[in-house]
Computed example of a mutant assay.
Amino acid sequence: MTRALAGPYATLLLAGLGAEVIKVEDPRGGDLARENSPYVGRDGVTVERAHADDVSISHLSRARGKQGVSLNLKAPGAQQLFQDLCRNADIVVENFTAGTADRLGVGYAAAREANPAIVYCSLSGFGADAPEGGKAMDVIIQALSGAMYTSGDPDAPPVRMGIPIADMLAPVFAVIGILAALEQRHRTGQGQHIDVSMLGALTSFVAIENWAALAAAGMPARTGLTVQRLSPFGVFECADGYVALVAVHEKLARGLFQAMGAPEMSDDPRFASRDARVANAVALEAKIAAWSRTLPTAEAVRLLEAQGVPAAPVRHPEEALTDPRVMARVETMAIAHPRYPHQADLRTSGIPIRFSEARTGFDETLPIAIGEHNRQIYGDLLGYDAARLEQLAKQGVI
């Protein structure tokens, strides 16, 4: 019972790991992601939906491997269908705002009544115990977590991360919690409620750095493209782009100075030890930048790698998604509109985990229409006959 990104990404991960996922959508519009631009269809990729069977690329990506049913949770009788689904399920995932699932009669108590062994995961902005009505989107969580002030130059405005990091990070924790709860159930037979907060998930990552300690030591927290407390470490401008490099340890620093054609920098008291390089990071980074700006990115990378210094060009996302290494491991994968598969070359996320005795991947199922698999789920799985399905549809329940 999820929509938008955080919840659907959690269930997407479970689908890729082999779960049979049933996506429950409101028949009066379905998942919010269905309306996300751009779309793909008979005309290729478009900003606006031009045809009824155009599909949002967001939905195409996030609904992979899932069957879809429609269920109006506000309609009388919907709670009975929900409980019937729970009797046939191992896991329920919902990402309503706190309190909404209980108010609708589809919270953990209702699921547990139907199936005491159910593993029920609530994924919300501020936690299931937060006051009801606290809505959260990724940008709100980035703002509240402090993450926006961990990047950028010291005097720059806050920096919004270009990927929806809160929406993606919280569901990873949700899946970890679900799998741990399943393992506990294998031992005890008991289900339980898992509660994951987007704010808590992202703030826990921000907290891996001790910002108070940095301030007490007089070390700036925001240093732009580099991390001065690890200097030299970060991104430097080249003649045609940017290079990322790491030369934290003594051997790497000497390799960097050699690549720069300035081995004598190893004897400079300002750069002769790790602590000295950190203390003089501004001067050191200025010298590195003066060198890198004279070179094409590929040449800077070649010189650094020849000296054993970890280095890489800073790539645009389109290029990164087609890296042969990630493609070979199916960490990114192709997606296509099921009716117009050759209209666009699209790539999206895979499952970045490999197993020696299993494989990951997605079934071919995808709910293009809202309630596309009502007959299979309500009929074949739950045993509802055609007359009952027709009546539920007339009543607006499905």
Rank of each mutant, 00 (worst) to 15 (best):
A15P: 08
E35F: 10
L81F: 11
I288W: 05
G396F: 11
P341A: 01
T100I: 14
P269I: 00
H186N: 13
A216S: 09
I368D: 00
A212K: 05
Y39H: 03
N72T: 07
F236S: 04
T360R: 03
L214D: 01
E20F: 04
R359W: 01
L252W: 09
Y108N: 08
A300P: 13
I163T: 15
A247D: 08
S197D: 04
L304N: 15
V21F: 14
L304P: 14
P158K: 13
T294G: 10
N88K: 09
G16F: 00
M137W: 08
A216Y: 08
H186E: 15
A328T: 05
F82H: 15
D102F: 01
Q190P: 02
A213E: 10
P296E: 12
L225H: 10
V301K: 11
T297K: 02
I370K: 01
L73D: 06
S56H: 07
F233S: 11
A6D: 08
M333P: 07
V397D: 03
L295N: 06
E48F: 13
P269F: 04
V326G: 03
A393V: 07
L225Q: 07
E35T: 10
D26I: 08
V227M: 03
L245P: 12
T100A: 15
M168A: 10
E357W: 03
L389Y: 14
D138K: 12
H337M: 00
R270D: 03
A180S: 13
V159Y: 15
R160W: 14
L73K: 08
A311K: 06
R254A: 14
E319N: 07
I57E: 03
R325S: 13
A78Q: 11
A276D: 02
A6H: 05
D275I: 02
S124M: 12
G255V: 12
V92A: 12
R277L: 03
C238M: 05
R42D: 01
D363A: 15
T100H: 06
A33Y: 00
M168V: 12
N88Q: 10
A272D: 05
I288P: 03
E357R: 13
M161D: 09
L295K: 13
A111W: 01
I368Q: 06
G127F: 09
E331W: 15
E285Y: 04
Y120E: 08
A344D: 00
N210K: 10
A4Q: 06
L123I: 03
A253T: 04
A15E: 11
E319Q: 15
I165A: 10
N280M: 04
K135D: 14
L17I: 06
Y384N: 11
E209I: 00
M168G: 04
L366E: 06
L5T: 09
Q83K: 15
A283N: 08
L71T: 12
S61I: 06
